[in-house]
């Protein structure tokens, strides 16, 4: 493997990693606050792709309008799911709310199969994103190049929001202690909604970037990327945003190199192995906080 191919793979890995990072942030934020694996997050990501097809193919809207519409629709879907499926179970045992999340995921997949059929649907091309550019000998498409940049920009903005605004402070408080923050006058439901808004917005952006270089969308398209991003979040330490980003990039890079080495069948096996090994040796992840269990 010469340097150019190596760099090309690096770029591809970082690019897919950036997308994973964006989705992983959604998982990690929801887990940080609700202590819930939002199994439906991967399917929200898949629905965002169908929204894009709707906007650009069925309504023939220009791509910038479509992007805005997709973001709005995805965010609404996420918040709606939270209100319907998670909010009523706030005081229920952890297992119930997890089953509810699995139920939503199951529902979204079946709904997508019903509405759009199980056959893959062509994803609309945004011409500007697909143009080829040449970076010092590495030829790549714009989308591959801007994905990591967009990821970094969003993460920096998000960190600013969380560390330096009142809403961010409330979020941190809620994730530290649900009940006490409620006593301090924080409107918990609003904070949770905002978390879902941020998570779903990033999922929508990630969805556009993920599917643009891919030919088609099908109802199960979200489940595996969703699981991988959850693994990225666990890897980085669930609840920690820099951790999720690092985990996303790492898994993206590993996956690309395994595929490059000719073992594409086993790239998912490897990702799951990472999860199991990580959970064994450092269950709190790279940047996770250790939580002592209270008796």
């Amino acid at each position: 493997m010469n340097t150019t191919t190596f760099l090309q793979y690096c770029l591809a890995g970082i690019s897919i990693g950036g997308i994973y990072a964006m989705i992983a942030i959604g998982y990690t934020m929801v887990y940080g606050i609700l202590r819930l694996i939002n199994f439906a997050h991967g399917d929200i990501f898949m629905m965002a792709a169908y929204f894009m097809i709707f906007a650009m193919v069925d309504f023939a809207l220009p791509w910038y309008v479509s992007l805005a519409l997709v973001a709005i629709a995805t965010v609404l879907l996420g918040v709606f799911i939270e209100k319907i499926a998670y909010k009523p179970l706030r005081s229920a045992p952890r297992m119930s709310i997890m089953i509810s999340a699995i139920g939503v995921s199951y529902l979204l997949q079946n709904l997508a199969t019903y509405l759009f059929s199980a056959l893959p649907k062509g994803y609309p091309q945004i011409p500007f994103l697909m143009t080829n550019i040449n970076l010092g000998g590495i030829s790549t498409s714009v989308v591959t190049f801007i994905t990591p940049i967009l990821t970094i920009i969003f993460v920096v903005l998000l960190m600013q929001l969380i560390n330096h605004t009142k809403i961010g402070m409330a979020m941190r408080a809620v994730s530290k202690d649900f009940e006490t923050s409620q006593l301090m006058g924080i409107k918990i439901n609003r904070i949770i909604s905002i978390t879902f808004v941020i998570g779903c917005f990033l999922a929508a952006v990630g969805s556009v970037l993920y599917f643009t270089p891919r030919p088609s969308v099908y109802p199960m398209a979200g489940s595996l990327p969703g699981l991988k991003c959850f693994i990225a979040a666990v890897f980085g330490g669930i609840g920690s945003i820099p951790g999720a980003v690092l985990g996303g990039f790492l898994i993206g890079l590993c996956e690309t190199f395994i595929k490059a080495a000719g073992y594409s069948e086993f790239s998912d096996v490897f990702t799951f192995l990472i999860l199991i090994v990580m959970l064994l040796f450092k269950p709190t992840g790279l940047f996770g906080e250790k939580i002592a269990e209270k008796v």
Binding site: V234, F272, L275, I276
Partner: peptide, 22 residues
């Protein structure tokens, strides 16, 4: 895997099932 707790256990077993299948 059995050393893991609640949701981590769930996700690890889900991962195992996928590994087996793949």
């Amino acid at each position: 895997v059995l050393r893991l707790k609640s949701d981590y256990f769930a996700i690890a077993t889900l991962g195992l099932a996928e590994i087996i299948r793949i």
